[in-house]
Design a protein around this nucleic acid. Structure first.
Length: 912
RNA sequence: GGGCGAUUAGCUCAAUUGGCUAGAGCACUUGCCUUACAAGCAAGGGGUCAUAGGUUCGAGUCCUAUAUCGCCCACCA
């Protein structure tokens, strides 16, 4: 008897083979078919510059599980893959590469630089795609998209034009977040705030007409004082009330600054007087508008001080700060400096300190879009898992400000707006306009800016399906089913997709949003390049196999919680896949016959353990499916794990070995083979979404062996691949409370004997004699199971009877077999009564002291338990107010415990 | 300043929504190379569920504080 499975499980030999098979056969690809229900996921497109990290791995494992599971359930699935052009990030990468060759982007010019980026994209852009394939991701690669490809560009332009025409996109001079290094505007949420130990400088601003008197203002950014145009106080602040309208002199610069009153000023902060710099602070910008103040820009785009900074022109903003403070100190304008903790904005791409800056930018008017999204949430058209994210998402939508979408970089979707050189009218158009829409001039110049990367990402769920064209895909697969992503991009991406989906498609882009946790290192820190604490999923795949990585990650994934990961975690997955492999070897070996023949049998030919395992399988199918419905991935995984390892391998396989090795009849052997094949087949189905490679390999082997050996498991095995087969459904015929409860009793008896063996230091090999005494009115026919008991407890012979006496010199154990569930089914063969006593006569070997100790310990446990139970029962309120079944359960338990205690005491009395 | 999450065995995490003696995996102890598997088998030990109050017949689970850690948001000049 030989199987084709090698004795050692080696994922390297199977993973790539099956992935190629699936892809070549086109199993990932489906076409719209209105006779089937669609299930769609769009991938969160990783950056083209990306390299697979653990976060990607988790994200894509979850999506693959959902897609494979739904595909098996018979849905017409689409997992839409692709990558994001990641404007700033990609531009930075290519710029760095050019810098290594001493080439600057500016020297190349816009067109040639973009050519370089495309070259880079074509060369390296598929790296992460290849890595996703290594994981087993069953995306429909024939539909792979890129946010800069032609179709998506068309979607971007069309959206921009539509929003502009509706007045939802506008251009204007506002204060935005400026990254001096990237030399571009950023959206509010692209700014990362960090706590910073800074200083608060208290600077004296003298009165113009009384230079010996002054007002002190406090600032964290003294260099901006060069752009001050006023000093503001709260109108209700008694200290300053009378000074409103007076004029101060700006130290060093000499500019005259009126004292103005503004509600915004917080009298409790600093001195209660604030310098007003409309060109360099968002609050001051608003204040400037309110009070009609001019603004003085003192800095260039690159963070270097300009001509308005006087002597400081040409200095970097932070050098200027230091130098200016020195001068102020020297000239005695600094009253004091205090340490001050405050948060400072940084560019999310390059981490440079952000500068508030006034410039001409494009914005999306968010209020109407956000209101529609809020409405959709309230109507449960978008549901978050876990639901706590909905509140966070909603509060963002409620407070959202207009979205700055223009970026002063080259790599991205160029804004489809043209400026007339004659009348300066803006023409916004999908195609290149021939003439100015106002004056008819042909002198048109396109806007230099590109759109925020997230603008195109926001369209992803429909742009990837062909919009603005009315494709069959769009019609069938949109809206999508589930979005799987990280909490980090709820605002960036999820919210914007909802808004754009509603605005453009008039439908939410997805009905469920599953937010998974973040992968952290062993110490609970984020994995990052700079800390060097990352675990490379590809290295882990190489070492443990993709399935082990998937299994280990997913068994740790509890709803939305972060995952502390260390390499040792992958051992669980490896051990499990290895166990599965070995179980398969055992099964396949034992299914093979030299002269296979078909033997008819019926359910009535099934033995007790066959019915038991089928019943357990049935409940596992039910529980696992239910868990997946609720996105409880670890729950589902644990259930199959426990069933496979601890029910199927530990018990069923061990029990049936006898029937395989010394068959009582060829029919019974066939029965065992059939059940083995049937259950294992279902296990492979249940496990397939989680560990696709090994299950496919084992299933292909199983299928062949089943066919060759004429085993009829009454399941459809015709598919070419396990991934195309049907997800198991429960079968009520196999549900058997009777066998599950009785098996639990048998397991207790076996464990009791094994425990005695272990405690008495008796070798496993040594066969024993056991006396099993049943008391009470139970109807469990132990005699029927004596072979099972003998085999599993390694007994020479076994005596079973009612109320048998304890043999001399025997170790014993009392086992309760009460049904505590409260909903007793008398016909199940298990009634409320009685215990089972197990005696193992050990003349000559028994260690009396050890045995006495065992009994005393057991007695103590029972008494402690009884105490807890009686405490409840002695409480009148418990009897009166707890539900009847709970009271009944406790009463049964009390009775049971009392009887057990009595039995143990009796045994103990032998020891004197 | 506001919000959210976490706190359960030595470690990493569960606990069906308030009801069996709180469960796994790893680690630990003891015995086994038993013809699928030592990446394994068998039998064990190990928990004041962060703290303090409260609600309830009953609390790991609900409420109120407190502590520690982490994350997010904010116009902290």
């Amino acid at each position: 008897m030989q199987t084709k499975l090698s004795p050692q499980y080696n994922p390297k030999e199977i993973d790539d083979k099956w992935y190629r098979f699936w892809e070549e056969k086109g199993f990932f690809h489906r076409k719209p078919d209105t006779s089937q229900k669609p299930y769609t996921i769009v991938i969160p497109p990783p950056n083209v510059t990306g390299v697979l990290h653990m976060g990607h791995a988790l994200n894509n494992i979850i999506q693959d599980i959902l897609i494979r599971w739904r595909r098996m359930q018979g849905f017409n699935t689409l997992w839409m893959p692709g990558t994001d052009h990641a404007g700033i990030a990609t531009q930075n990468v290519v710029e760095r590469e050019l810098a290594a060759k001493h080439v600057k982007r500016e020297h190349l010019g816009r067109e040639r630089f973009i050519e370089e980026v495309w070259k880079w994209k074509n060369q390296y852009g598929s790296t992460i795609i290849k890595q996703l394939k290594k994981l087993g991701s069953s995306c429909d690669w024939t539909r792979e998209r890129f946010t800069m490809d032609e179709g998506l560009s068309s979607a971007v332009k069309e959206t921009f034009v539509r929003l502009f025409e509706k007045g939802l996109v506008y251009k204007g001079k506002y204060m935005i977040n400026w990254c001096p290094r990237c030399s571009t505007a950023l959206a509010d949420d692209e700014v990362e705030h960090e706590e910073h130990e800074g200083n608060l400088w208290y600077i004296m601003y003298p009165f113009r007409d009384a230079p010996h008197l002054y007002v002190i203002v406090a600032t964290t950014r003294p260099e901006t004082m060069l752009g001050d145009v006023a000093v503001a106080v709260n109108p209700k602040d008694d200290r300053y009330k009378d000074m409103i309208g007076e004029v101060l002199t700006l130290p060093i610069v000499g500019r005259e600054l009126p004292i103005i009153a503004d509600e915004l000023v917080d009298p409790t902060f600093g001195t209660g007087a604030v310098k007003v710099t409309p060109a360099h602070d968002p609050n001051d910008f608003e204040m400037g508008k309110r009070h009609n103040l001019s603004s003085v820009v003192v800095m260039q785009e690159n963070g270097v001080m300009n001509e308005n900074a006087g002597d400081y022109e040409g200095l970097d903003r932070f050098e200027c700060r230091n130098a200016l403070v020195e001068e102020l100190k020297l000239k005695k304008f600094i009253e004091k400096v205090t340490a001050h903790k405050h948060s400072v904005g940084h560019c999310y791409r390059c981490h440079t300190v952000i500068e508030p800056y006034i410039s001409d930018q494009w914005f999306v008017k968010m209020r109407p879009l956000a209101d529609a999204a809020i409405q959709a949430s309230r109507e449960k058209r978008v549901i978050f898992f876990p639901d706590r994210w909905e509140k966070i998402y909603l509060s963002w939508l409620e407070n959202v400000r207009d979205w700055c979408i223009s970026r002063q970089i080259w790599w991205g979707h160029r804004i489809p707006a043209w400026y007339c050189q004659d009348c300066s009218r803006i023409t916004v158009s999908h195609g290149i306009p021939a003439v100015c829409s106002k004056c008819g001039s042909t002198e048109l110049k396109q806007d230099n800016d590109v759109l925020d990367t997230w603008f195109s990402s926001a369209l992803w769920p429909f742009s990837t399906m062909g919009w603005p064209k009315e494709t069959p895909e769009l019609k069938y697969y949109y809206p999508t089913s589930t979005l799987v992503t990280d909490r980090g991009i709820i605002y960036f991406w999820v919210a914007r997709m909802v808004m754009m989906g509603l605005e453009i498609m008039h439908q939410v882009p997805f009905s469920n949003v599953y937010i998974h946790g973040t992968i952290l290192d062993e110490q609970g820190r984020k994995m990052s390049k700079s800390l060097g604490n990352g675990i490379d999923p590809l290295v882990m795949i190489d070492k443990y196999g993709a399935d082990a990585v998937r299994f280990s990650i997913i068994i740790l994934t509890t709803e939305g919680q972060d995952i502390k990961l260390s390499e040792s975690k992958f051992e669980m997955g490896r051990n499990f896949t290895n166990k599965l492999w070995n179980a398969a070897r055992f099964i396949l070996m034992n299914l093979q016959e030299e002269h296979p023949e078909e033997i008819q049998h019926e359910f009535s030919d099934y033995q007790f353990e066959d019915r038991w395992i089928l019943s357990r399988l049935n409940s596992t199918i039910e529980a696992c499916t239910a868990s997946l419905e609720q996105f409880k991935f670890n729950d589902a995984t644990m259930k199959i794990y426990d069933f496979t390892w601890h029910s199927f391998c530990d018990w069923y396989l061990e029990i049936v070995k006898a029937r395989l090795y010394q068959p009582v009849s060829s029919k019974d052997k066939k029965v065992v083979q059939t059940v083995l094949a049937k259950v294992f087949n279902q296990i492979l189905h249940l496990l397939h979404p989680f560990i696709p490679f090994i299950t496919e390999e084992l299933w292909q082997n199983l299928k062949k062996v089943i066919y060759e050996n004429k085993i009829n498991i009454q399941e459809d095995m015709r598919s070419e691949s396990l991934m195309c087969n049907a997800w198991p459904t429960q079968d009520k015929r196999y549900e058997s409370q009777f066998s599950e409860k009785n098996m639990a009793v048998l397991q207790d008896i076996i464990r009791a004997i094994r425990n005695i063996r272990s405690k008495m230091n008796i070798m496993e090999k040594q066969k024993l004699h056991a006396v099993i005494s049943v008391s009470g009115d139970g109807e469990l026919d132990l005699e029927e199971h004596s072979n099972l008991l003998k085999r599993m407890a390694n007994l020479e012979h076994i005596d079973i009877g009612k109320d048998l006496p304890k043999p001399e010199n025997s170790a014993s154990e009392v086992i309760g077999r009460i049904d505590l569930s409260g909903d007793l089914d008398i016909s199940s063969g298990l009634t409320t009564g009685g215990q089972i006593q197990v005696f193992v006569p050990l003349t000559g070997i028994i260690d009396q002291a050890a045995e006495k100790e065992r009994q005393l310990k057991h007695l103590k446990q029972l008494e402690e338990h009884l105490h807890i139970v009686q405490q409840k029962l002695h409480n009148k309120n418990f009897i009166a107010r707890a539900p009847a079944h709970v009271v009944a359960m406790e009463q049964n338990r009390e009775k049971e415990l009392l009887e057990q205690i009595q039995k143990v005491k009796l045994i103990l009395s032998d020891f004197g």
